[in-house]
């Protein structure tokens, strides 16, 4: 039996519970929509402009840096698991691996790209 089936069950049940709760709410709660109620909430004033505002490029950069380190971690997890049985060379390889990426982080930092401004 594939162990992932359990995981799938957890996910299914994990989805069923909120769905059930929301459905319960949908059944039990009143429904009296009107345009004012359904307008978007903007601190109580009239909605101004479009909801889609232009975003800072920093969002992209953070996500990008995160992506890179995420992939890095993917490589490092097998390394870490096996580290106890491997020699020093493996540690050094890992350190080189990390250091190379830290260079990227430093680059981004030194270029001021990690600042929120």
């Amino acid at each position: 039996m594939n162990e992932w089936l359990y995981v799938a069950l957890f996910m299914i049940v994990g989805a069923i519970i909120p769905i059930g709760a929301i459905l319960a709410g949908a059944i039990l709660s009143p429904k009296k929509p009107n345009p004012i109620k359904q307008s978007t909430y903007e601190c109580g004033i009239e909605p101004v402009g479009d909801a889609w505002v232009q975003f800072k490029v920093q969002y992209y950069i953070f996500a990008l840096v995160f992506l890179v380190f995420d992939v890095e971690a993917v490589f490092l997890f097998p390394w870490a698991v096996k580290l106890g049985q491997l020699g020093l060379y493996a540690v050094v390889e890992g350190i080189i691996f990390i250091s190379i990426l830290v260079v990227g982080l430093l680059y981004a930092w030194r270029k001021g790209m990690l600042e929120w401004s």
């Binding site: 950069i61 990008l64 890179v68 890095e72 190379i100 990426l101 990227g104 680059y107």
Partner: peptide, 17 residues
């Protein structure tokens, strides 16, 4: 792979920013 990621990061950061 780490060098590749480094290159991608630096390149992307440089281009986007």
């Amino acid at each position: 792979a780490s060098v590749l990621l480094l290159a991608a990061m630096i390149g992307a950061v440089y281009i986007a920013f």
